[in-house]
Design a protein around this nucleic acid. Structure first.
Lengths: 134, 134, 134, 134
DNA sequence: GTGGTCTAGACCACA
DNA sequence: GTGGTCTAGACCACG
């Protein structure tokens, strides 16, 4: 499914969150699909079950996945994006930081846009907005 | 010059780095300009001198600023962007994370591009890429 | 009769208990009425028979229902509320927690009372305390 | 400040959350006040630092407290209740469950209201709505 | 079998 | 000093 870089500065549980989000957007995980159990994913990633558990908790709070008691964890079937003020502000800040960094790497606006297009193709496939929600 | 948000989850020293980068790009700080002393900036931002010092060290390592012993700290006059492999990889990863987050906030590709254009205008002025390192 | 939400954080067996209590209070189930068999209710709710069984056991311990061996399970005909100390304490604690949560949602005392009145009307009908255990 | 019941069925971290909420509402903790450090509170309650940490994280997510990096954790100065759909629904469900339980303990509507009044007096002081936000 | 909670003890980044 | 992350290993409620 995805890999974990234990040496990375981004926490493992966040890498897991990102990995699962990516799988869902790419369609590798479909709404309703069962996720690996906490223990199984911990084994796969050779990490601690608690770490996976934390990632799952975060994703559940975001309503991206949901757990059925005693049955396991599943990709939500009815995810609806809600535009939250704080998160939007955070996103803009992050983007600004990213553009500043890019600028100091000598990367121009048109290059960033090109990279962005490539990433969108990787995530959503060729066509723009193919398997999005609406 | 810029503000610090002590409540933010991004470390204060990184906020300082970002703030200074932003001032330079906007032209508020020109190459050769003297930066406030560590102590003065700490007073201005009501933060710990060690924190400012750490920010200055990072910026110096990036060759964005330089210290002349006994004279103070200055904006570098000869900054040359060098495209380092690992930083480029990190940037792409960050961008991917950002796009995933945006997607789950319901923000589409065209919206992100619009926000990006606005940020570039804020940072560099109207014209695309005009007043970059000249 | 009532619905189960598998996504809810409250255990399914508790939802069943609550559902049956509600049916009895509303008069949908009268004292002496036969309850569905464990197996049937499990089929109706598409849940595990063990879960229904656990709910029935709890209700029996509360003397709200009773099983006649070989005949089935019935709503008790002679339920007598007994004010047990510890349950009373628990109830007060739960209520306190609820009021704290309400406060942090911005819900005032008078709003809570209004909601309470609505719920009582839904459960017992219009008149206050009229058709209780009669 | 408050006590923890290790034998209770409600998780320790939730008891901590509730205890802190209660202290704030009662005015024992004022906006801007520093909370005990994770380690200190763990010592006071003879529990594990991780457990306290989890409680603090939850409270921070609710914007009831905020952490200043490297400085500690503080009661938020600008808490604004936001009425969230889900939480409101949850609250109503909890209240319904509570009323069902009360009914089966033989507690009538007027008794519940009396208990509620007592709790509000304990939390907010004599007058209704004294030290609330508005 | 599932996830949730808790402990003990460790390391790290930040101010 | 602060909180944040992670591990190892344990117990429990639920279905």
């Amino acid at each position: 499914m995805f890999n974990i870089d234990a040496r990375s500065s981004t926490p493992i549980y966040e890498q897991i969150i990102q990995g699962i989000k990516e799988c869902i957007i790419k369609g590798i995980l479909q709404p309703g699909d069962k996720l690996p159990s906490v223990r199984d994913l911990a084994l796969m990633l050779t990490t601690n079950p608690n770490t996976v558990s934390k990632a799952y908790s975060c994703l559940e709070r975001l309503k991206i996945i949901e757990t059925l008691r005693g049955r396991g964890t599943f990709v939500s079937t009815n995810y609806k994006p809600r535009l939250e003020e704080d998160k939007m502000t955070k996103l803009k800040d992050d983007l600004k930081k990213l553009l500043l960094d890019a600028h100091y790497l000598g990367i121009k606006k048109r290059d960033i846009k090109k990279i962005m297009d490539e990433l969108y193709t990787e995530l959503l496939g060729e066509s723009e907005g193919g398997n999005e929600y609406e």
